[in-house]
């Protein structure tokens, strides 16, 4: 794994360029087919009482790129995330009795496997690992123990093997070495023996991301990775996310802060009121009238953030948006 973290997001790496190129020819319409989808979701709906929180009929996520899932608060992004990762069950899930019709039942396949209805544990085992909006660092375990917990294929996690240390000591050493390497990359190595609970909010986010990487995931799902993070750390977090893609992972992340998304995502999916209303390359999707209507329309005071983060290209886009909004008003 590369340990050089890009510090400015305007640096476009070769992998980044390739990622953008892989979806260059895809038409920016909701539910469009991708050349090489790693995740395909069909007919996923979730109702709470009378309210429909999520209703996604079809969505594909391209392999090896950073896809951002954005939308205003309450758009159903996190619920959708929970549904894909098995932490929640779709209302449209197939049932033994009285479920939806065969063609309309929720279905999702990941990397060639059916992952609808198998539960969070198995989804994670298939290589789709997630983080949480409110960090779930295990606060009374040390940072290093948190990392070790993330690794898979641990013989010592079987009760009968666990009793005899020599049976798992070798794998434990490998895991520890890998954990330390990752901690060094995420600048947490000197904290390895501290309780995770003593870390700052941003460090917990980093730890959670690093812990997810311990299992060598195929796809990593980040739920609002930037929420509650000290702005000084945001830059480095964005760099880490890009580095994941550059290492060949697929990244899907939820964010409601738009300007974060522009810099690093190769493809953007926009949700509003539970539905996918638009998708496309980050450069162009913001111009979609549906997005402006659903998203910007609700947030006239979009925070433009730190100007130093903005490339000229992005600044132009924002200008275009402002014009579009004024035109509407």
């Amino acid at each position: 794994m590369s340990s050089d973290v890009p510090t400015t997001t305007s640096t476009i790496t070769a992998a980044g360029a390739a990622a953008k190129a892989s979806v260059a020819g895809v038409s920016p319409t909701p539910g469009v087919a991708k050349p090489d989808p790693i995740l395909t979701v069909d007919h996923v709906t979730r109702r709470f009482g009378g309210m429909t929180a999520v209703d996604v009929q079809h969505l594909e996520v391209q392999r090896g790129i950073i896809t951002a899932l954005i939308g205003p608060n309450g758009a159903g992004k996190t619920t959708f995330f929970n549904l894909i990762t098995g932490f929640d069950k779709p209302s449209s899930a197939p049932k033994l009795i009285g479920g939806p019709k065969a063609g309309e039942a929720a279905k999702s396949s990941f990397n060639g496997n059916e992952v609808g209805n198998i539960g969070a544990t198995k989804v994670a085992k298939k290589g789709m690992v997630r983080t949480f909006q409110l960090t779930k660092a295990l606060s009374k375990l040390t940072v290093l123990e948190n990392m070790r917990l993330g690794a898979k294929d641990q013989p010592g996690e079987n009760l009968l093997v666990a009793i005899v240390k020599p049976l798992w000591a070798k794998r434990e050493a490998e895991i520890t070495a890998k954990a330390e390497e990752l901690l060094a990359r995420f600048k947490l190595l000197e904290k390895k023996d501290d309780m995770a609970g003593s870390l700052s909010g941003g460090q917990k986010k980093l730890l959670e991301m690093a812990r997810a990487l311990m299992s060598d995931p195929v796809m990593i799902m980040l739920d609002e990775p930037m929420a509650g993070v000290n702005p000084a750390l945001t830059q480095s977090l964005l760099g880490h996310i890009q580095a994941l893609r550059d290492d060949g992972m697929t990244v899907l992340f939820v964010e409601h802060d738009m300007h974060m998304v522009r810099h690093i995502s190769d493809w953007v999916v926009v949700m509003a009121e539970g539905k996918v209303v638009a998708e496309g390359p980050s450069g162009t999707v913001m111009d979609d009238p549906a997005v402006i209507d659903a998203y910007l329309g609700a947030h006239h005071n979009t925070d433009l953030g730190d100007d130093s983060l903005l490339t000229d290209e992005v600044a132009e886009e924002l200008a275009a948006e402002v014009t579009a909004e004024e035109g509407k008003a």
Binding site: A120, V129, E208, S215
Partner: peptide, 10 residues
């Protein structure tokens, strides 16, 4: 500490 976090790790 948090069973959801452990579940998310497979």
């Amino acid at each position: 500490e948090d069973e959801d976090a452990v579940r998310a790790l497979g």
